[in-house]
Amino acid sequence: MSSTSTTAADAPHDAGTGHGDDHAHDVTLAHHFESHEQQFDAGKLGIWVFLVTEILFFSGLFCAYAIWRGLHPEVFIYSHHYLDTFWGAVNTVVLLVSSLTAAWAVRSAQLGDQKNLVRNLLLTIVCAFGFLGIKTIEYSAKVHHGTLPGEHFKPHPSAMVLVEDGEYIGVAGDLARKELGLVDPEMPAGLTEEQELALVEARAHAIELYSAKLVEQADPVPPSVPTFFSIYFFMTGLHGVHVVAGIIAMFWLLKRAKRGDFTPKYFGAVDYTALYWHLVDLIWIYLFPLLYLIS
């Protein structure tokens, strides 16, 4: 604890928001730690405890999920057909890759390989943005179809999932298109722009009408389907917020990595952020089957 022997006449360490230590010996060792090892261990324990709080934070939602699913399994079986398993699977892969690059970044930092550190951080950020981009595609489809949470759940007939005798038979709009012969319909030649628009609208209207008829013929929609979308949007939304937080943290790391802050002796921040990122990944790995892959 050599730092205690510095006289109080030194610049006050709390005068500003900055680093706080005014010792010349090693800028990467905060003044209240005795060794790099102690500093690293403290940070590591801190981030693990923080991850525990994160798990408990999500646990409330997982708990709500379990209770609803226990009470209304039919709602979950019916509703999951609204989700796009393809994009969900792609997103899972994207996140898994980003976890790999994050772990690689830690390894690069440990080895003092600054070039690879920067490269892997960049790749991780790119994957994170990719994840958010795909999530945007999924969300905008939901907004477009009116499959929104709670009291905002007002799907268009053409977006409704049809079930007969408990068996999934498809989305009303798709079936309607097929039966009306409107799958990839061609535009007749020689129409004015106005006429084209009118035709598109008429076709859409026909699909809507036919869908509504199909919806009437199929099994009734289980009540409280909106709660499924509540939990879907809440869980994936909260997860998305965590992705955004991870991106911010990684940009901060990137800036510091480019500046050459990290050395084999001092790379805690990279390690901690990567741990956080793995947790974000892990939560998605649970969300994907729980929401998308119900059968």
């Binding site: 709500a64 609803w68 949470p149 709670g150 009540p223 409280s224 909106p226 509540s230 809440f234």
Partner: peptide, 19 residues
């Protein structure tokens, strides 16, 4: 959950919506 329930009507704690 409570705040979001109130602001956008999630229905988690609302029996009318299955909560």
């Amino acid at each position: 959950m409570l705040a979001i329930e109130r602001s956008v009507g999630l229905g988690i704690f609302d029996p009318a919506l299955g909560g």
